[in-house]
Computed example of a mutant assay.
Amino acid sequence: MSKLLYSVAMSADAFIAGPGGDMSWMAAHLEPNPPMDDLPGKVGALLVGNRTYRGDDPNKGTDEEGAFSGAWQGPQFVLTHDIPDTAEPGVEFHDDLHRAVAAARAAAGGKYVSILGADVARQCLRAGLVDEVLTIVLPVLLGDGVRLFEQPGGGSVRLEQVSVSHVPGATNIWYRVLN
């Protein structure tokens, strides 16, 4: 069965996007990261939040536009309460978390389902659906924006560190979620 992976680049103060969901800050910090270069080949489907799907891409208008800096192509499953009337090639819209996850897992063919978006990741974590978390920590402090994980009123998710790798300009930390 395909595992759910919350993979995300973030600032050293744990923001994955700046104020208003701005992702442009990231472009200046995306350098080659050999330990992560093979990740797109391990992903079979994306589970994407609506804001992320419609949001800023730090590589918009370049050859690197899209998931994993344009290195990944495949099915996307967008979790949204506002399902569009017209279909988009390669994209399915769902208004139910469990149905979206099931569809993404089926499409992933045993590869990872990569979760993109803080809100959909939070929902998956709260539901106990996430198997692994990969954080790529970039050397910048944003001070405000969208946090990696935020749970109003508290609530923790236990993680077990699987690996850590350092490259110039980033630290990659891979965790297993302990349920």
Rank of each mutant, 00 (worst) to 15 (best):
S2R: 07
S2H: 08
S2V: 07
K3Q: 09
K3P: 00
K3A: 03
V8D: 02
V8F: 03
A9I: 02
M10V: 02
M10G: 01
A12P: 00
A14D: 15
F15C: 10
F15G: 00
A17P: 01
P19L: 02
P19A: 12
G20W: 11
G20P: 06
A28W: 07
L30S: 05
E31Q: 13
P34L: 12
P35E: 06
D38R: 13
P40F: 02
P40L: 05
P40G: 05
K42S: 14
G44R: 04
L46S: 04
L47E: 02
V48Q: 03
N50L: 04
R51Q: 06
T52K: 01
Y53S: 00
R54T: 15
G55C: 04
D57F: 03
P58F: 10
P58H: 04
P58C: 11
K60H: 11
T62H: 13
T62P: 14
E64H: 12
A67M: 13
S69G: 10
S69Y: 09
G70D: 08
G74S: 08
P75Q: 12
F77P: 01
F77W: 05
L79F: 04
T80F: 05
D82N: 13
P84H: 06
P84S: 05
T86C: 04
H98S: 14
R99G: 07
V101I: 14
A102Y: 10
R105L: 12
R105N: 08
R105S: 11
A107L: 10
A108S: 08
G110W: 05
K111A: 14
K111M: 10
V113I: 09
V113H: 00
L116C: 06
G117K: 08
D119Q: 14
V120A: 02
R126E: 13
R126P: 00
R126M: 07
G128N: 11
G128M: 09
G128Y: 06
L134T: 05
T135I: 12
I136C: 05
I136E: 00
V140Y: 05
L142W: 03
V146L: 01
R147F: 06
L148W: 12
Q151E: 15
Q151L: 07
Q151W: 07
G155R: 13
G155S: 11
S156P: 00
S156G: 13
Q161T: 15
V162M: 14
S163V: 10
S163A: 15
V164P: 00
H166L: 13
P168C: 08
P168Y: 11
A170N: 13
T171Y: 06
N172F: 10
I173K: 02
Y175T: 08
R176N: 10
L178A: 08
L178E: 10
N179G: 15
